[in-house]
């Protein structure tokens, strides 16, 4: 039972990581930070008229709200598989909650993750050696 729960948890974690990479969750947060810095810079600017500052603040407030909600929603959606595994595990009779706090299960998930990353890395190197695209790297950067 614990092995099945660990496997389910590992699959959920893998799905979470894949979704976070696919949807560009980190990029959304980077854009949010950039808009925040830009709004601070615009508000601190001297020599600009109040009218233009008001218009810029209105636009930036709406944009900042939209971007922050989008980033939060992306994060929540990316974490949804993990939450679903934790919520549905006891319902299916699998102790996923115990597996999350079990050191042995966590070590197994770590080993599985490292193995998958290595397999992806090796497959990516083989694909690149045969003239493929630059997909399948270890790092998304």
């Amino acid at each position: 039972m614990m092995a099945a729960a660990t496997l389910l948890l590992a699959l959920a974690l893998l799905a979470t990581v894949m979704l976070a990479r696919r949807w560009g969750v980190l990029g959304r947060f980077a854009a949010l930070g950039a808009i925040g810095r830009r709004s601070v810079r615009i508000m601190a600017r001297r020599g600009a008229s109040d009218c233009s500052k008001e218009r810029a603040a209105r636009l930036l407030a709406m944009r900042l709200m939209g971007r922050s909600l989008a980033a939060g929603a992306g994060l929540a959606l990316a974490a949804a598989p993990l939450a679903a595994a934790l919520a549905l595990g006891p319902w299916l009779g699998l102790p996923t909650l115990n597996a999350l706090f079990d050191p042995l299960a966590r070590a197994a998930i770590l080993c599985l993750g490292i193995s998958l990353a290595l397999i992806r890395f090796v497959l990516g190197r083989i694909g690149r050696a045969h003239g493929g695209s630059r997909r399948g790297r270890l790092s998304p950067a």
Binding site: M43, A61, L64, S68, G72
Partner: peptide
Amino acid sequence: TALGVVGAILL
């Protein structure tokens, strides 16, 4: 995200 929402409200 929470800081962004608070900043948007302040702005």
